[in-house]
Design a protein around this nucleic acid. Sequence first.
DNA 1: AGGCTAAGTCCTCTTGACAGACTCAACAAG
DNA 2: CTTGTTGAGTCTGTCAAGAGGACTTAGCCT
Lengths: 160, 160
Amino acid sequence: MDWSPENCSIARTLGLLGEKWTLVILRDVFGGIRRFNDLIEYSGVPRQVLTNRLSVLVEEGILRRDSYQEPGSRARPEYRLTEKGLDTYRILIALREWGDRYVADPEGPPLEHLHRDCGAPVTLTVRCAEGHEIHDPREVVGRPGPGAVRRSAKAASGTK
Amino acid sequence: MDWSPENCSIARTLGLLGEKWTLVILRDVFGGIRRFNDLIEYSGVPRQVLTNRLSVLVEEGILRRDSYQEPGSRARPEYRLTEKGLDTYRILIALREWGDRYVADPEGPPLEHLHRDCGAPVTLTVRCAEGHEIHDPREVVGRPGPGAVRRSAKAASGTK
DNA sequence: AGGCTAAGTCCTCTTGACAGACTCAACAAG
DNA sequence: CTTGTTGAGTCTGTCAAGAGGACTTAGCCT
C-alpha cells in the first residue's frame, strides 16, 4: 500500500489551481469579470500576483487572452475561460457547497449557482457507475488506479 | 452588480482549505494516513507546515485529535476526520476528476474513488433542484444569494 | 503636445515555505 | 537508574513568495 503520490491527480490539480488566489480569480471570471483592473478590485488580488496567475492560467490553457475595445479607447486584453477552465466549475461548486454548509453567515449563502434554463439552484450529487447515489462520504473508498506507481523501497518503512 | 466578495463561501472555504498543503493532507487522511510521521512521508509536507496545518484543521473542527497506542509504546496522537472534514470529499473528488481529465499521465489515473458497496467508480453529477442534469458549465449561472452584501459605494467605479 | 486610462512593471517590506538539527516524553534494555 | 529508541513535535536560519505603493507604457482624445 505504498503508492507514490507524485502523479496524484489531486496533487497535480492543486499544483495548477491550488495557489492562494487562483480559484478566487476563476470564481470571478466565471462571474463575468474579465479585465485586469476589475479583477483586482473584485478579488482583492495584489497586482503582481494577478499578473503572475493570469499568465500561468493562460499558459496552462485555462484562460485565454482575448481582446476588447471600448469605443474611444485602445484595444485591451480580456481573459476568458477555455473549455479546460469552464470545467473547473465542479470544483467551484463543491467549494461553495461546503462553504455554505460550514462557514456561511446566518443570513444565508452570498452566492448561488442556478440552472440557467429553469432558475433552480444547482447542487452536486455523488454517484457510482452502477447508478447508486451516495450520501455518506464513508461509502467512498480511494484506491490506486491504473496509473498508480509504487513508491521506491526506501520509503516503505514507518507505515505500521 | 457590485457585490462584496468578503462573505463569499468559496473565498471562505479557500481561507480554510486553500493553503498549499491543506488539501493534500486531507487527501491522505482520507486515505487512512493519520499519524504525524506518516503524513510527512506520504504527503511530503515539511514538518513545520504539517504542525501548523494540523493545528488549524483541528481548531476548525475538520480534524479531531485522537490517540492511539502501539503495544510497548506510549500513547500518541492521531488525526481523524470529523463530519465537517468528511464532507470535504466532494471537493477532493471534484479536484481528482478535473485532474484526471486534464493533467493525468497517459497510463490512466493514479487514484480512483470507488463505491464501497459495489466497487464501481464514483463521479460527480451536477443537477438542479428541478432534477435537470447539467453537462455544460454554461448552463450554470452565479447569482448573489440571500446573504449577499452590496459593496461599499467607493468600490462601485471601474466596473465598466 | 499634453492628458487620461487600463494594464502592467518595479521596488521594498514582510510573511511564509523549507530543511536540518535539536528537544521532549514515555517505554524498554542493560 | 542510566542509556537508548521512537514518534511527535520545536528551533533556527535561508530563501522564495506575497502585499502594496509608486512608477511606466501605449494608444486615443482633446
